[in-house]
Nucleic acid binder design. Structure first.
Lengths: 225, 225
DNA sequence: ATCAGTCCGACTGGATCCAAAAAGTAGCAC
DNA sequence: GTGCTACTTTTTGGATCCAGTCGGACTGAT
């Protein structure tokens, strides 16, 4: 890799101030994008070399990912990319159902800034869906949901929901790959947004529940078949 | 430290197979027991020396604790023992309310082995309470609650609840220090257990809610005053 | 041919050393 | 006396090196 001396911000966005943060972001991306396959062993030396750092920051990043459940670890055997069983997938979605409902309720009533952010994010989701840009849609979708969850003002809840999302990110892109699914997402977002505008928290919660159910059932069918 | 060659199990229980696991357990204990005070900086060199390991395994243990929210971290400034604001404390208890209710419902109906474990744990809680053994009571109490939550068969949920407990462990001991509080705990446990025996999940959930409310309100009064 | 035991290679775990960043301190100008 | 700057100290971040463990391959016996 060519390292510019005077311009540190050469590659995508600014590179984090420490190697472990850089590695953390990079490995998380590789896992959630499916580039590193579930169940596969992580060879520290090889991966560290590929990222041009030593094993020390890599190991610290892996410890963080272990805490998030993205990798599993056994002493003297190293790290593996975590595998999600069907039971795990359903558990994650069940927990999201409970926790995101709480977040939505706690976020109400929403102020104008939140609505603005929700609408901006939704516009991006729509654009990406139209173009079939799966990765971009996943990003915009996350921004949409988390704009709402952040408004709850519950940092720990936000963090937990975030880790639940991370652990299923690889599957989410799979879901967005279907054009029908993308249409569903848009319709559900719009309906939830309308409920939120009407100040109807329970209505929005119900739409988000449908939103998740549709995703998990589709994925379950796809993965089992 | 004197290391026996033939008998590795010299100090309390068997020492973990890796230094980082040993350090993790030790630092977690020090934080949850209040030995390391909230807000204080963690000097890696000093702490590593005290535990007779190098900074590397200590740093990996701290990364794990960061994931659990027991310490906070800022690049180039190091780790600090996390401070719980009143808002944090209330958020933790609110999340526990939601998640533990889910665990109780999912655990029903309980089989005999779970009842046996619950009763064994409760007996220990009663004994410890009578003797005013705060630390021991905290341990037995945790065993009681988690026997129930484990029965839900939801590993991620169990883990999340565990981290929420960890983050408030230091306060829990404070609560148990009051004789009145200990009496409350016993009564609430007994009532919840009776509801569980009757197959009444919602009744048990209500008792656990009271259980937590009593604790958080008492603590709030104590900490604000 | 199968299985037990041993050995060797590969990989992880940990210690030490070095680099870089932040915090503290002293000196200087105003 | 105050505020800024340069320098020193302290502490964290990272690289390299060594030790310990695990798993598989090889050997030999039954």
């Amino acid at each position: 890799m060519v390292e510019s001396v005077s311009e540190p911000a050469s590659e995508s966005a600014t590179r984090p101030p420490t190697a472990q943060q850089f590695v953390l972001a990079e490995v998380r991306r590789a896992i959630t994008s499916g580039e590193l396959k579930p169940g596969s062993a992580i060879r520290q030396e090889a991966l560290a070399e590929r990222l041009e750092v030593s094993r020390v920051p890599l190991r610290e990043a892996l410890k963080t990912l272990e805490g998030e459940g993205l990798v599993s670890y056994r002493a003297h055997r190293g790290y593996r990319v975590a595998e999600l069983s069907m039971a795990d997938l359903r558990e994650v979605y069940r927990l999201r159902e409970i926790l995101e409902a709480e977040a939505v309720r706690a976020a109400m009533p929403l102020d104008d800034a939140v609505f603005a952010e929700l609408e901006a994010a939704q516009a991006l989701v729509e654009q990406a869906a139209e173009r079939g840009a799966v990765e971009e849609m996943a990003r915009a979708n996350r921004r949409f949901h988390f704009a709402l969850y952040e408004a709850a003002g519950m940092p720990r809840l936000l963090r937990i929901i975030g880790t639940l999302w991370d652990s299923t990110d690889a599957y989410r892109s799979l879901y967005y790959a279907g054009a029908d699914n993308r249409r569903h997402v848009l319709a559900e977002h719009r309906a939830a947004l309308a409920a939120l505008r009407a100040g109807d928290a329970e209505g929005a919660v119900r739409w988000f529940d449908r939103h998740r159910s549709a995703a998990v059932e589709t994925l379950a069918a796809q993965l089992e078949g």
